[in-house]
Design a binder for these strands. Structure first.
Lengths: 209, 209
DNA sequence: CCTAAAAGTTTCCAATAGGAAACTTTTGTT
DNA sequence: AACAAAAGTTTCCTATTGGAAACTTTTAGG
């Protein structure tokens, strides 16, 4: 029974059999992508050839998906055309928005409750964003309310909107932050936030993956 | 005269001659990277072979940099090992931080003044971040204070901290936003912010590249 | 230690990528 | 429309990749 796996950000359709052995991969973009980059830069195959050190024929075959370039060739392409390597196989507009702008009024975000935080997700109308913004009301008062470190991929920016919080992190001493204070950290490091004010504190979080 | 070019995020050492023709590329990571991913996942070559559908020998040769895998093979690796493709050639920690956490107290950011905005850059101790956070005091009162649209790569998140602003964008009607309101938009679309309150408004911006 | 099994590497060969040149298509000029 | 020049594609060949199996190294028991 063949199964289709689709990855999130760098999509590639993969067909696997019942033993989870990859049988075929539907090559999606690299040829079209390269052609688009080259034509948008107003380059001919000849010029691209000079810039990359690759043969005109090779470029043509890659663009027409007749061959799968080696990593070494991909590096030459990226360097020669002055682009980042992932551009060769990533759809340029990651943000596939319903619109291209999304306003969230105070209190109008999407609620997401946990025992320790009350999250209000922002800009939820836009998918495939590079950042995930949300406001959180902090219920927690101590590490024990969590039981263990929070830890995930990406980087995180946090700004205190109301009240006073304490940021606990795996490799640092705790810090107290009040309204207007903010912090940027690597989210793979254990971290969590507790309120030290009478009322629950309110913070803004912006996260990447 | 050979020249060394070093790209920023996806480093690759490229040796070019005086005609800008790429002569050689110093392969950096793909082998080591794969080996690290596999060993960290506690997989043997045999197991990785089953997952990816690639021969044990092929995996070994890639890990020892004896061959340069084709893009098709790289896709199989990513799919089989459940990773995103760029992980194969990107140093995992893009954020090369002085530390791995950076607190900015209210008013302690780095000043950057323009005629229309007064920016306070945050978390400036960390380099190579994925996000650029800053607070801005908005002096501008109309489009004419700018003369033209602001427009740049990436996505932008904006939250109003104090006062009331109007967000002007190329493809939408202006919107007024007050404290707590926020917006997420594609920064390649022309955009700018003016204050509509008596005093200058204060906003938070978080930007990606 | 010695041996057996597992993990990793190398060899050999078939399949395919990449380069040079021939060929075809497109573009632009008269 | 005819022609020339430029751009793009295909062919042919060599170099290199990827797979199967042989070989070597490492790990675990006794």
């Amino acid at each position: 029974m063949a199964e289709i796996i689709k990855t999130d950000i760098y999509p590639s359709m993969v067909v696997s059999d019942e033993k989870n052995k990859v049988k075929a991969i539907e090559q999606i973009t690299i040829g079209k992508q390269l052609k688009e980059i080259r034509t948008k830069s107003k380059l001919t195959l000849e010029e691209a050839s000079k810039l990359t050190g690759l043969a005109r024929s090779t470029l043509s075959k890659i663009e027409n998906e007749q061959i799968s370039p080696t990593f070494a060739v991909m590096q030459k392409l990226a360097a020669g055309l002055s682009i980042e390597l992932p551009q060769l196989f990533t759809k340029p507009n990651a943000m596939q928005a319903t619109g291209r702008r999304d306003v969230t009024r105070t209190g109008q975000g999407m609620e997401h409750l946990t025992s320790t935080y009350e999250h209000e997700l922002l800009a939820t109308q836009l998918s495939n964003k590079k950042m995930m913004p949300y406001k959180s009301r902090v219920h927690a008062r101590s590490f024990d309310d969590f039981g263990e470190w929070v830890r995930h991929q990406g980087e995180e920016f946090m700004l205190v909107l109301e009240g006073e919080i304490q940021l606990l992190t795996e490799f640092y001493e705790p810090v107290n932050l009040t309204q207007g204070d903010n912090v940027y950290y690597d989210a793979t490091m254990g971290h969590l936030v507790v309120s030290v004010s009478e009322e629950d504190a309110l913070i803004l979080w912006v996260t990447t993956d």
